[in-house]
Simulated assay, not measured.
Amino acid sequence: MKENRVIWIFLIVTQFAFSQIRGVVKDSISGEPIPYVNIWVENETVGTTSEADGTFFLEASKEKSIVISVLGYERKTLKGTAISIVQLKPMTYDLAEVVILNKKQSKIIEIGDIKNAIFQSFDNGPKIEAKFFPYQASYSKTKFIKEVTIFTDSRIDDATIKLHFYSVDENGSPGKELLTKNYIVTLKKGIIKHRFVISQFDLIFSEKGMFVAYEKLLIESNKTGSKYQPYVLYNYVERDFFYTYAYGKWTKLNAETQGKLQLNEPAINLVLSN
Rank of each mutant, 00 (worst) to 15 (best):
L78C: 09
D123I: 10
K115S: 12
E220R: 14
K223E: 02
T244F: 04
D53L: 04
F132N: 05
F56Q: 00
E32Q: 00
A159D: 02
V99C: 07
G47V: 04
R239H: 10
T224Y: 07
V237H: 07
Y236W: 08
S28N: 11
G248A: 09
T160C: 08
S65E: 15
K143A: 09
L101V: 13
G259P: 11
I68N: 02
P35F: 00
V168Y: 02
D153G: 08
D169N: 15
S138K: 15
T149M: 13
S138Y: 06
T49N: 07
K227Y: 14
K79M: 11
G248P: 03
N264V: 04
T45A: 12
K131H: 06
V6D: 11
W40R: 13
I184A: 11
F205W: 01
N182K: 12
Q258G: 02
I7K: 09
I7A: 03
V168F: 03
S226L: 15
I219N: 10
Y231D: 09
V70H: 02
Q258L: 06
F242I: 08
K146N: 15
V86I: 13
F57I: 08
K162L: 15
V185S: 10
K115G: 00
K252H: 03
F196H: 10
G112S: 02
V67R: 01
N269K: 15
K260A: 10
I108S: 04
Y247A: 13
A52F: 03
S28G: 04
K64H: 12
E265Y: 05
N222F: 01
G190D: 05
V25D: 04
T152W: 02
P230Y: 09
K223Q: 08
P266N: 09
Y231C: 04
S19T: 07
V212R: 01
Y36P: 01
